[in-house]
Structures are given as C-alpha cells and as structure tokens.
Amino acid sequence: MFGGPSPRARRLAGSAAIYAGYIVVGLIFLFPLLWVASLSLRPMAELFAFPPRLVPQHPTLAAYRDVLTGSPLARYLLNSVKLVSATVVCALAIAVPSAYALSRLRFRRPAQKSAAMLGMLAVQLISPLVTALPLYRWFSALGLINSHAAVVLVYVALSAPLATWMLTGFLDTVPLALDEAARIDGCTRLQSLLHVLLPVMLPGLASTAILLAISTWGQFIVPFVLLTRGDLYPVSVGILDYQSSSDSVSTHLLAAAAILSALPAMLTFLVLQRFIVGALTAGAVKG
C-alpha cells in the first residue's frame, strides 16, 4: 500500500524486520511470566537444577495445592474478592448519579463543570500515600484500623472519580432525545435515569466496573496502612507478607502464589478487551 515503486524484496525485508521486533518484544514481556510459571510447576528438587531449564522435567501442580491449603493465600484471595466487589458496587452507585449530573444537567456556570471534571482527574494523580498519614491517624482514633468497611470507604473515594469520568463520557454519547422522550411521558429525572438510561449504559457500566476491579485488586497502600491483622489482608498485601516468610527452598510456592494473585486481574483484562470491542461494534450498529 505504501511501497509505491519500491521492489517487493524491500517490502519483504521490512516485514521480516517487523517480525524480528515482535519476537524480541514478545520475549521481553512474556519471558518473566513464563519463568515464574515454570518455577511454580516444579517439584522442590528441580528448583536448583543446573543448568536451569524452562520446561520442568517432572511438572506438577503440587505447589498450587500446597499454597492454597497450607498457607493463608486462599484467605487473602477471598478478602480481595470481598473488598473489590464491595468497592465496585459502591463506587458505581455514587458515580452513576454524578455522571448523570455532569452529562445532562445545566450548570449555572460552565466553568463549574470543567472544574469538577479536572478536579476528579487530579484525584487520580495524587498518591494515596499522601492521604494515608491523616487517614491512619483518624481511623486509629475512631478504632477503625482493621476494618474492611473503612478500607472499602477509602477505595470508593479513590475510584469513584475515575468511574464518574468514564461514565460521563459514555452518557455523552447517548442521545438526549432518549431521556427527553421519557420526561415528556411524565418520568422524573430519577425515573428516566433508572428505567431509560441505565439499560442503555450497560456496556459502559460493565467496562467501568472491570477497570475499577483491576485497579482495586492491585491497590496496595490503603490496606497496607489501614490493616494490621494478617487474616484481613487482601492478596496484594498478603503476598508481600508471604514473600517475607518464604526462603529459597519454597521458591516454587512463592511462584505459585504470585501466579494465583495475578490470575484474576489477567483474566479480567482479557474480558475487558472483549467488552471494548463489544462497545465499539454496538455503537456502530446504532450509529
């Protein structure tokens, strides 16, 4: 298409160079994961095999079984699932009405709206570590250290702005005529949001929820500071604890634990890719 008069051989050489680049990039980004997966599939005797080999001689899932039954990892995973689902539900409950206001309502001054939007971006850009010190002091004074509810509250404050930002963008693409028709039929704004807009927003809600879930799954500072009891840790903090208690003869267990704590986020990401494609094609059909 772009080769123009240049000979076919040059084009082939160009494509070969691109593939060489792909292989290098693929190796750099995939190899670390493959190596850890390989460690996790070994019996202990093969941990120190020399020279090291990527494919274990006697692959086994024993490390996964041991780490799930003989360590608190299952507990950590469960805590993470609890915290993440509560956060996603609460953050969406707060973000949906906010996005409605930002997309549908007239502000007295347009500057108020852009200030609100930019303010929400700024929340993403300041490290939770900055607010961790005062939050730690208050929550200790209130006796809320080691409370999952307190952790969820902070998570929601950190993720609702991003959710609002995304949902506002999504609502802006939904034609105004849709909710105006409902309002003419006598719906209040709340009814038009719940019964007319919400069903249309479903793809946007889904991708927002998935993005929030991935980022909350990896959230580290808040639980690290606000939780001190091991049985309450989410997996991000728990696996650090697990690492500090592991040694070279349990490397396969640490590797299995690392894979298990990364797997939910990785699988969710693959679903996210599908959703993005889905949202795009749905828009094309409607457009």
Binding site: P32, L33, W35, V36, I214, W217, G218, F220, V235, S236, V237, I239, L240, Q243, L254, A258, S261, A262, A265, M266, T268, F269
Partner: peptide, 10 residues
C-alpha cells in the same frame, strides 16, 4: 494489569 507487588516478586 499485574498488581505492583506481583511485578516486584516476579
């Protein structure tokens, strides 16, 4: 998309 702690361990 990997959690930062997991990247450190890897």
């Amino acid at each position: 998309v990997l959690p930062g702690v997991v990247i450190g361990i890897i």
